[in-house]
């Protein structure tokens, strides 16, 4: 079965390793994932004012193109894209009048019929692959690795588009347990990383990264595992920069969940693009004996 995939801007630039490792996993699990044709930017931040329909055009156009390809499901890797597409999808389903306005505005495009389901890659792994199936394919369990799962905002909120319980999600915990890691609970797992403030206020974001990481380290976490490319940048890069702001502070490595699955499946580490991280992710894997020293 062919599965359609929507990348978004960041997956093609600063988060190539997220995309590459995801494709490698799909390959190993025997699924064919194909990038959709003719995609555009999702618009990133979903429109929050009621009268602003303009900003629903970009996400809606992408949904139309999924229908154009004859598909009814689209997988996303980026949390922001997933959230934006889901919110627009929901809005046009709840307000048919708005859909009509948007459809008639985009006269070059086909009308959207509301048939597309937007799912996040994590949802695909949980609901369609199944963590018990995944567990059976693990060759290289991450035994002894204590990690904090970090959800951030866009996977969980607003609750209408959440992939799990908005306050106590478990999807990552279940995933990481199935690949052999030990998950250390952390209340900051659902708190914002600082988001786009990383552009204009580095220190604000470094502060966030410090707070989140410090809490994780105090409870014995050795790594943070997450899904969103912006969260990765903020915790990894801005977290590393926080070492200059706080004495005796050392940033722990930050992984995408796809990278750890790839490692656990015993795939070629090259698909993980570990070189793109600010804090070396390989050291810990070696220390834990997952990689040979």
């Amino acid at each position: 079965m062919k599965l359609l995939y929507y990348p978004g801007c960041t997956l093609k630039t600063s988060a190539k390793n997220l995309e590459k490792s995801a494709f490698a996993i799909m390959d190993a699990l025997g699924h064919e994932m194909v990038e959709m044709e003719d995609w555009t930017c999702c618009g990133v931040a979903s429109s929050l004012t009621d009268d602003d329909l303009m900003h629903h055009i970009a996400p809606l156009r992408n949904l139309i193109h999924v229908e154009d390809e004859g598909e009814d499901k689209i997988i996303t890797l980026c949390d922001m894209c997933c959230n934006t597409l889901k919110q627009t999808n929901l809005r046009v389903k709840e307000k048919p009048d708005d859909l009509e306005t948007l459809n008639s505005f985009m006269d070059q495009e086909n009308d959207y019929n509301g048939t597309v389901k937007v799912i996040h890659f994590l949802e695909f792994l949980r609901d369609e692959v199944g963590f018990d199936v995944l567990k059976k394919k693990i060759k290289n369990p991450l035994r002894g690795m204590k990690i904090m799962s970090y959800y951030g905002c866009m996977l969980l909120r607003p609750r209408e588009v959440s992939i799990d319980d908005a306050e106590e999600p478990t999807v990552m915990e279940e995933l990481f347990t199935s690949i052999g890691a030990e998950v250390v609970d952390n209340p900051f797992k659902v708190e914002c990383c600082g988001s786009y403030h990383t552009v204009e206020d580095k220190n604000l974001v470094s502060n966030r990264a410090y707070r989140i990481t410090k809490f994780a380290v105090d409870r014995g976490s050795e790594a943070i595992v997450l899904s969103c490319p912006l969260c990765r940048f903020n915790l990894d890069v801005r977290g590393k920069e926080a070492e200059k702001l706080y004495n005796n502070y050392k940033q722990i490595p930050v992984y995408y969940y796809t990278q750890l699955i790839a490692v656990a499946l015993g795939l070629d580490p090259k698909c993980c693009g570990f070189g793109d991280h600010a804090v070396d992710p390989v050291l810990l894997l070696k220390k834990k004996g997952v990689f040979e020293k």
Partner: peptide
């Protein structure tokens, strides 16, 4: 900064 920060951060910032 423009080179290293993920693109989505810029789009998001401009939107806000």
């Amino acid at each position: 900064e423009k080179g290293s920060i993920p693109q989505l951060a810029f789009v998001c910032l401009f939107r806000k």
